[in-house]
Amino acid sequence: MPERGDAERTEEATPRRRQKAREEGNVPKSRELSTAVIFLISVIFLYFYTPYLIESFSKFIKHILSKTNYIITKNSTIELFNFTFQYYLKVLIPFFALLITVGLLVNVAQFGFLVSPKALEPKWDRLNPINGLKNLFSKRSFVELLKSLFKIFVVGFVAYLIVKGKIDQILVLADSDPFSSLVFLGKLVFELCFKIGLLILLMAILDFFYQKWQYEQDLKMTKQEVKEEFKQMEGDPLIRQRIRSMQREMARKRMMEEVPKADVVITNPIHYAVALKYDANKNKAPIVVAKGQRLMALKIKEIAKEHGVFIHEDPPLARTLFSQVDIGEEIPENLYKAIAEILAIVYKMKNNNIKQ
């Protein structure tokens, strides 16, 4: 990821930013970890695979040398080429298959399975020499240089200590037979590679944690970036306002549909109107099914008149209900007595109408 200014980058990356970075192939990974694991596995594999390689190569040489009266013709050349090709194919395929498998597994272990077409797209800004110079003299490049120098020093020092411990045995190789010398040198090379491989792996693991930390730092955002992303995710302010307006309109429509079902509408003649409904089987107390002020209050009263809902004028009670009780809530206990008296009148009027 290109370096950005550190000013005010104090906010943790949002999930959207992390997802976008992953889609672009920008994930926390250490190339050194892949290299170290592949190198160490290769050394161990070759240690056990070398006897087979020697035996196979011996058979290959014997086959070539058995052609004592070899006559170069088109057919004999094709035969020799096919034999040589099959030999190298049989010998090298297991080794390269192992390397590819290990490389894939190490990468999957670092950042999971990821296929990112965007990561394959050409980055033309990398061809800009000015950007190249900036990256060359950046803080990250300086850190990478220090890491490389440290690794060279440590690996060289460890190799020196291993060889120094074997110096006496190396000096007497001149008096040994060639086979013993080759065996000794082979074991020494394996010991060097194995111990250096373990050391490189340890440094690569530390580098992986450093890369994860650096990745998190690179992903951090400014407060302004967080706001801009929120706006993009939420949409245009005008659209959000339109959606909220539509939601309010739908809520008003549903509220008005409840007015005809109300038992009573309590009003402050012009300013407030609150519709109440009481169902003794469902609620402990009457609930507010609709409320409004000014034009909305007039609309509630109009619908109530059309459907024969009782309208009771009580300005103080109407104001209290409007300010203290939301739609769908039960009235508070301190209003039980006042509402009960009103409902008693309503039920009495309904009974009289039914008798008539």
Rank of each mutant, 00 (worst) to 15 (best):
M203A: 05
L127C: 06
M250T: 05
Q241L: 12
I64H: 07
I130P: 10
K62T: 08
P332Q: 06
S323Y: 07
N69D: 11
K151V: 05
Q211I: 00
P51H: 03
A174H: 09
V108Q: 00
E11Q: 12
L114H: 05
P260W: 05
S176T: 15
L105M: 10
E121Q: 15
F230M: 04
Q356V: 13
I162G: 13
S138A: 01
A275L: 04
L136G: 10
V158F: 08
N351K: 05
A251F: 02
R17Q: 04
K253G: 08
D236W: 01
Y347G: 09
I54F: 12
K90A: 14
H63N: 09
E333Y: 03
D236L: 01
V309D: 00
I78E: 02
S180N: 13
L343W: 01
E333W: 00
I266W: 08
V154H: 02
F179D: 04
E191I: 14
K261F: 15
Y272S: 13
L65D: 09
A338P: 07
V155P: 00
L33G: 02
S148A: 14
P269V: 11
R16L: 02
I44Q: 11
L198M: 09
A174P: 03
V154M: 12
M349S: 03
E333K: 03
Y160K: 15
C193P: 01
S34E: 03
S76Q: 14
F81E: 02
V163Q: 11
V264W: 13
Y87H: 10
P129K: 10
I170G: 04
L145Y: 14
I303T: 13
T84R: 04
I339C: 02
V108N: 02
L202G: 09
T73P: 05
V155Q: 07
P315I: 01
L161H: 05
F142S: 15
L238S: 07
N352V: 13
K261V: 14
P2G: 13
M233N: 03
Q247K: 07
A159M: 00
I71K: 05
Y88Q: 07
K355P: 00
A21F: 11
E216M: 09
D207T: 06
L238V: 04
V265N: 03
L136D: 10
K90R: 03
E330C: 00
I200C: 04
K284L: 08
R18E: 08
D326M: 13
Q86M: 12
M250C: 05
K220F: 03
L145I: 14
V37C: 04
R244I: 07
L104C: 12
I287F: 07
V37I: 10
L317E: 11
A97T: 10
N26V: 13
L127S: 07
D175R: 11
A174Y: 12
F39G: 08
